[in-house]
Amino acid sequence: MLRWYPAAWRARYGDELGAMIEDDLEGKPPTVGFRWSIARSGMGERLRGAGLAGDSVSPSERVRGGAFTVLCAFALFVIPGAGFAKISEHWDQSITRGSRHLPAVSFNLLASLAGACAVAVMLGALAVLPTFLRFMRDGGWPAIRRRVIWAVAATLATAATTVALAVWARHLTDHQRNTGFGWYQLLFVVFVILFASTIATWSAAAISATRHLNLGAGQVKVAGSLAIVVAVSMPVMTAAAAVWWGSMATAAPWFLAGTAPGSSPSPLATNLLVVLMLMTIASAVGLLGLLRVVRSWRLLRSV
């Protein structure tokens, strides 16, 4: 049960908590509620240790934790974002010029904000790069080696699957690629899982590396500012995607359903629904990070 707690916490309090659990249980098996209370407390300690909850860490750690939360949320957002990019490919060719205004505005807003977020993440990486290089020169590689190896492995597997998909797709008709469920579609699902794993493992590696860095107040402020930009952009992008869906469902529902132009299929596309749900979840997580950054910002300024 103590596995829920971070290793450093277990090293300090693990024995005592283990003894208390034994005393409380008096030889009886733990109930589900008992296990849940330990798990909840352990997760709480992990969140506190990462600066994501509580006020026991410094304002700088709290801003950093909030920025990490936003980074994780953005990593999650990239997955439905890529799905949206795929679904909306060539949308402007299936709609009349007169109906194009609203979907064009929403699509361009989403694309612009996605670009701005990507730039913000890169600027954040650049801001901490000198400290990261110093960390690596001082022998920091072993601390992040395992996570980087996982990330590289996921990237190579994704690249290999992408090549396989591209080569295979050349030998298939549009109908074979887009309908039914066969080996090609199964490989596509594997690709999506690997793509998500690549983003997740690189995010974990980035967070692990940054946690080992001794960032200055200026760097933390830059990271916090960029996190605010990304966190605010995600709900706007989600809303833009919803507006695009609504306007396309009104003007060209056949595009969403993949049916013949002029037909009247249901505008409720399952793939878009999943995309919007994931975007909403990522936006909500991002807003939690934003709250953490904003609440600690005033304290950070006084440091």
């Binding site: 309090y13 659990i21 409380d24 330990i38 909840r40 407390s41």
Partner: peptide, 11 residues
């Protein structure tokens, strides 16, 4: 419970 107690003790 042990979790809540040790969370408070830590703080």
């Amino acid at each position: 419970g042990p979790g809540a107690l040790y969370g408070a003790i830590t703080r």
